[in-house]
Design a protein around this nucleic acid. Sequence first.
DNA 1: ACAAACTTTCATTTTTTTTTGAAACTTTAA
DNA 2: TTAAAGTTTCAAAAAAAAATGAAAGTTTGT
Lengths: 167, 167
Amino acid sequence: MEFKEAKNKFVQTWGALGSQWGINKTMAQIHALLMVSHEPISMEDIMDELQISRGNASMNLRALMDWGIVYKEYKAGERKEFFTAEKDLDELAVKISRERSKREIKPALKVLKEVSAIESDGTAAEKHFVDQTTKLYDFVLKADNVLDKITEYKDNWLAKLVVKIMR
Amino acid sequence: MEFKEAKNKFVQTWGALGSQWGINKTMAQIHALLMVSHEPISMEDIMDELQISRGNASMNLRALMDWGIVYKEYKAGERKEFFTAEKDLDELAVKISRERSKREIKPALKVLKEVSAIESDGTAAEKHFVDQTTKLYDFVLKADNVLDKITEYKDNWLAKLVVKIMR
DNA sequence: ACAAACTTTCATTTTTTTTTGAAACTTTAA
DNA sequence: TTAAAGTTTCAAAAAAAAATGAAAGTTTGT
C-alpha cells in the first residue's frame, strides 16, 4: 500500500467510525485529514481532497472548532485561513469526553433526576419505574464523574489509568 | 409529574441519547420501555405504546436481542412472545461495551495497523502520517484493553473503578 | 472608498436512514 | 391437515440528516 491509498483508507475509516458514534461523516473525515497532515490545510484543499462543497467544509470546520479539536491558523503573507487538528491524543480524548458530557450526558442526567422523583402510588409498576430510573441516575452520574476524574490527569491519562487498573 | 408523563419523558430522552450515540432512536426507545417495565411486554404492546409498525418493532427487537440486552420470554398458556430488558446496569454496560468493541473498534484497529505499516519514503508528510497513525493505533488499542479489563470485574465494576481511581 | 479575496449562511436538493405494511413464513392447537 | 395466531422479511415510502451552491457578508490591501 502506498501513501495516498493509506491516507484515503484512514480518512474513510475514521469517517465511518464517526458515523457509528453519531458524528457526521464529513466532520470526522475532515478531522482525520487534519490529524495526519504535517502542515495546516486550507479550506480549498480540504474541499478538493474530500470532494465536498464550500458550505459543507465551512460548517463542519466550524463544528470541529466548537468541539475544540481543530484550530484556525494564519500563515504569514497569506490571506486564507488554514486549519490544524489537535494531535495530542490524550488531549483529543479529553476534549471529546468533556464536550459529550456537557452536551449529552448532563442534560440526560437532569431528566433522569426529574422522572425518578415522581411520587409513586405504590403499585408494582410505579415502584419499579422509580427504582430503575433512580439506579440509572446513580449509575450514569457515577460514570460521568469517573470520566471527569480520569481526564483530569490530563497528561498521559490513559497510561496512568492502565497502571491503576492493572495493579 | 405523574407516572405516564414521566415514563414518556424517559423513553423520549433515552431515544434521543441513543441517536446522539449512533443508535437507532426506536431501538433505544424500545429498550427504555422494557427497562422501566416491571413485567415482560408483548410486541403488540410495544407497537401500541410507541406508535410504531409491526415491522419496525420486530426488526429492532431482533437487533436488541443480537446485542444481548433484551430477552425473549414465553408466558405459560400464552401464544405470543414477550420481551424483557437486561436490568442490571453493570451487565448492560458490559454488554454494550463488548459489542461496540467487537463491531466497531476492532475493525478500525485492523485498518489503523494496516495503514500505519506503509513504507515511508522519508518525506515529512509520510513520516508524520506513519507516526500519527501508529500513535493512534497504540492509543485505541490501549483504550480498548482498558475497557476490556474494567468490564471483566463483572460485578459492580463501576463501583470498583471508582475505588481504584479515587484513592 | 473600493474591489478582490475569502468565508458564512441558509433555502433547496440530494443522500442516507428509518419506517411502513403486506406477503411469506412459522408455530401451535384442534 | 388446516387454519388461526403470531412473527419475519423486504421492497417501497417517508422522514431525517447532510450537502450543495449562490447570495450575502467580511476582511484586507491599495
